[in-house]
Design a protein around this nucleic acid. Structure first.
Lengths: 143, 143
DNA sequence: TTGCGTGCAAAGGTTTTGCATGGCA
DNA sequence: TGCCATGCAAAACCTTTGCACGCAA
């Protein structure tokens, strides 16, 4: 666990640093590449994807996809145990993504496993709906 | 609602027929194309994607994505009202789709609305994970 | 020195777009 | 007739792979 390859390199350190600085955010491979570039750090695309993949396998990162035309997002998991209670809510109106850490959701996972024999993969699961802000906005618009 | 374009064409009818015959299944654009081809019906890729998109906008179809490198799945929604009362579990291993009606899940929806201000749209939400059958199979393989 | 890591470029696959043609109303 | 729909091919897009070189241990 937590190996991410045998060698420690400058590129890996820089990627890790960026990810850690942006804990709790959802970052795409392109964003990562672009931001590093802005800081004067160039890392090949392949290297980024390869390292990100390692981190996902490690459990250091979580990968999820919202839409097939969107690129995959990665999220750093600083405290792995806490993150087992973490779901994603995506507003279909404004497109905003919310992270929800909640015991009730952890209970949901347990329930489905016990009663339905199905083990949910939170990294692939996104709950769609309308967020509070958009619901309020709709009310004001009289929709 | 339920417009899907102004004109009725042979291509649209054939796509609709296939989708309706496969209600409750998850179909990719390629599968659709391939199966129609097998039946001697050729429809251009662009046409398929364009029409599928319209149907998704209509609410006639639901679109799902598992992974950014996997192609998107579409599901025909024959009875929209019924489908709003249950959740979908999709196995990422065998691809099987499970329809689950469960009080605990109804409670989840309520909880998220009350505590997180987010109104889940069950017709758009799919929980991804591994089903019991695949978990057993994996165990036997010693994974 | 060994062999993993890197970068570049090319390939891979899905989905979209441009444009001329075809077909519904 | 007017406009939408279709088909083909090309483009766009994200991601992976092959290969030679570089670098950590």
């Amino acid at each position: 666990m937590k190996s991410s390859g045998s060698y420690k390199t400058k590129q890996k350190e820089q990627i890790m640093q960026y990810l850690i600085e942006h804990s709790g955010e959802h970052i795409t491979a392109q964003e990562l590449s672009h931001h590093l570039e802005t800081d004067g750090i160039h890392i090949g695309t392949a290297t980024i994807y390869r390292f990100l993949d390692q981190l996902v396998t490690d459990g250091t990162l979580r990968k999820y996809t919202i839409d097939s035309r969107t690129c995959a997002c990665y999220e750093y998991l600083p405290h792995q145990h806490e993150c087992s209670k973490h779901f994603h809510l995506k507003c279909t109106e404004c497109g905003k993504l919310y992270h929800v850490t909640c015991e009730h959701l952890a209970g949901l996972e347990e329930h489905i496993l016990e009663h339905h024999g199905f083990q949910i993969d939170q990294s692939k699961t996104v709950l769609y709906g309308i967020c509070a802000l958009c619901r309020d906005a709709d009310k004001e618009d009289g929709i």
